[in-house]
Nucleic acid binder design. Structure first.
Lengths: 258, 258
DNA sequence: TCAAAAAGTTCCACTAAATGGAACTTAAGT
DNA sequence: ACTTAAGTTCCATTTAGTGGAACTTTTTGA
């Protein structure tokens, strides 16, 4: 196994709640001998992938990763376009908006626009949530044929809450509804008390696919507000789909769009 | 040599003008055998560090790098970064450096790095000075629109010395010059015999704004030394602004930057 | 202040992966 | 279809990674 695999695993340890790691963290998180953990961190630092925090034994990502990460952000123009739409809708509605991408069965936030309300959803960029149990995830999954989804979840899945899909049948039923409507919705699923509405759009040339999402306190969103979010997001995504000529784009069903 | 070194070199190939690389790009850029380039890119992709663009032979950074880069972005606070820059410039020039924040119409020192010269400026951390009558203060005020500054000084202000702005007109004239130049300067204003050069930078996400300042005996600083301070501070602040994506950052005017 | 415990580093024989030249396959240009 | 460029695979050689244990440093708490 290449050391790059191990290095990538180290990077996956970082999140909004873990800004740095130590040798023992790695031993616990990745179940590796501490001799390895020690050398791996030092080698990654020597390579310039990590940097030590002050002169402590704590390691965190370096500027190099930040710069390379920025390239990702801008290389995918789809993300820029989607981000612009979400920024506009978020500013209009006042709730938090963000865009996410799927990696296997995980969803990762890429950009975020905090809402203006006192009670707002704070999404940590870079955190992973389960695709099948989130509106963003299902908006993206809905673009795939059922057999591909089944293959993706060959190992089954563990529902994080009672409101998330509990079985394949339930997941496919939800996806069917969401495909018909043109948007995905979640409430109290991956995150307690949080509701979200998402649409997905892709770029067939680059192969990128992103979800546009508005997230709000579940108790706070009226039906009218939900409708406003759905039409704004849906129209914005439709505009992008028209530009990228996305063949898999699922438009809003006419009964809602009007 | 560890493959991590090579991987880091690959990441260094990415920039705002190179969003993706191919095997031949690597061969040219890093002068490596193409067998290596081919395997390196594939291994990095398999590890999740890179992803292929569409189904082409072009590789670009992955979300994983974006995610880890975001952690860097949030892990080091604005104050830490600014302090690192000021510490470096202070050590280089020999004069006292400090960083300050604004609280209403007051400026408060947060960290300080004493100079090495016999005659040095000693700033007490935590002391308040008037924002409008200091280079740090004006560097921070320059980031605000004029009407907001007027609102801030609705109660008027009392010039502490003859060299400080005596009126609103004079303050705005000074700010206009400082906005054009990209740095603020003071001499004999709040503190007798002391000159200072400051630049400001902010983090739109956290809302923090800090001033980076080098302070020196007014009689002791040559034009060349001033110029060195300005470019060092300006470049350091610009790097921070790039990381935080500070939309209000005022870069050095090109006539000075060169 | 000191000893015990925890955290981190270094050592070493062993194993697995990286290297680069050349042959081979695939895609692109005329 | 032919030619060239681009990318991949093969192979023996070299080099780096592995993990257990011994060792050093740092932290903790009586």
């Amino acid at each position: 196994m290449s050391i790059l695999l191990a290095a990538a695993d180290v990077l996956r340890c970082f999140s909004s709640t873990r800004h740095d790691v130590t040798v023992t963290d790695l031993v616990a998180l990745l179940d590796m001998p501490k001799s390895n953990a020690s050398r791996l961190l030092r080698t990654m630092r020597d390579a310039g992938l990590l940097e030590t925090v002050g002169d402590s034994k704590r390691y965190r990502p370096s500027v190099l990763l930040h710069q390379a990460g920025q390239v990702y952000r801008f290389s995918a123009s789809l993300i820029d376009r989607a981000d612009a739409v979400v920024a506009r809708v978020s500013a209009e509605i006042g709730h938090t908006g963000y865009i996410s991408v799927r990696q296997g069965t995980d969803i990762i936030g890429v950009t975020a626009h905090p809402g203006r309300h006192a009670l707002r959803v704070v999404t940590a960029i870079g955190d992973r949530i389960a695709a099948f149990a989130s509106s963003t995830g299902r908006a993206l999954l809905a673009r795939l044929p059922d057999d591909e989804i089944r293959r993706l979840y060959a190992g089954g899945f563990a529902p994080p809450s009672a409101t998330a899909p509990q079985s394949f049948d339930e997941l496919f039923a939800r996806l069917a509804v969401e495909r018909a409507r043109g948007y995905a919705e979640s409430e109290d699923e991956a995150v307690r008390g949080v509701g979200a509405i998402s649409v997905a759009v892709g770029d067939p040339v680059s192969g990128d696919e992103v979800a546009l999402c508005i997230s709000f306190p579940a108790a706070m969103a009226s039906a009218a507000e939900r409708a406003a979010i759905i039409t704004s997001l849906g129209q914005g995504a439709a505009e992008i789909a028209a530009i990228t000529k996305d063949p898999r784009f699922i438009p809003l069903s006419s009964s809602i769009a009007e």
